[in-house]
Amino acid sequence: VKVFRALYTFEPRTPDELYFEEGDIIYITDMSDTNWWKGTSKGRTGLIPSNYVAEQ
């Protein structure tokens, strides 16, 4: 598990995607895809765009 911080707010387009706000901490559990990672924030899990976060 790696810890990342959201650089921007992300509004999901599908139920599989995770909503998060700029500054949120996201725990990444799967980075197997280059563009979409699986992450958890505020008790919810979903896909996030990798270019919206920076490693802490």
Rank of each mutant, 00 (worst) to 15 (best):
N51W: 15
F10A: 10
M31G: 03
M31H: 06
K2I: 08
I26E: 00
M31D: 09
G43M: 04
G23K: 02
F10S: 14
L7Q: 04
I48W: 03
F4N: 01
E21H: 09
F4A: 05
V1W: 13
R5Y: 15
T14M: 09
D24E: 08
V1M: 13
K38M: 15
T14H: 14
T34S: 14
T45E: 12
R13N: 12
T14A: 11
T9L: 06
E11Y: 15
T9C: 06
L18H: 01
L47P: 01
I48D: 01
N35K: 14
T34G: 12
I25A: 06
F20K: 00
V53Q: 01
A6H: 02
E11W: 15
T9H: 08
K38L: 15
E55M: 12
Y19V: 04
K2R: 15
E22N: 05
T14V: 08
E21A: 09
S41K: 05
D16I: 08
E17N: 03
F10P: 01
I26L: 13
N51I: 10
S41W: 05
Y52T: 03
L7V: 08
S41T: 14
L47E: 02
W37K: 02
V53K: 01
T29S: 12
P12W: 05
I48L: 14
G39H: 01
I48Q: 00
K2S: 08
Y27L: 12
R13I: 08
W37T: 01
G43I: 02
Q56C: 15
T40W: 15
I28N: 00
Y8P: 00
T9P: 06
N51Y: 09
V53D: 02
N35H: 15
R44H: 10
K2L: 12
S32I: 10
F4E: 01
K42M: 10
F10T: 07
G23M: 02
S32P: 08
E21G: 05
L7A: 03
I48A: 03
E17K: 08
G39Q: 00
G39L: 02
N51A: 13
N35F: 15
W37G: 00
F4Y: 14
F4S: 01
K2E: 05
N51S: 14
E17S: 05
M31V: 07
A6N: 01
L7H: 03
M31F: 10
S50P: 11
F20Q: 00
E11L: 15
Y8E: 07
Q56F: 15
V3G: 05
G46M: 01
Y19F: 13
F10G: 01
E22H: 06
Y27P: 00
S50T: 07
V1P: 11
Y8I: 08
L47Q: 04
A54Y: 13
E21F: 07
L47T: 06
Y8V: 07
S50H: 07
I25T: 10
N51Q: 12
L7M: 10
I26R: 00
I25W: 09
T45Q: 11
L18N: 01
T29G: 05
D24W: 13
D30N: 07
D33G: 09
I48T: 02
G43D: 07
E11H: 15
I25P: 04
R44E: 06
T29A: 06
G39R: 00
P12Y: 05
S32G: 08
T34H: 13
I26K: 00
T14N: 14
V3D: 03
N35W: 14
T29C: 13
R13A: 12
T45L: 07
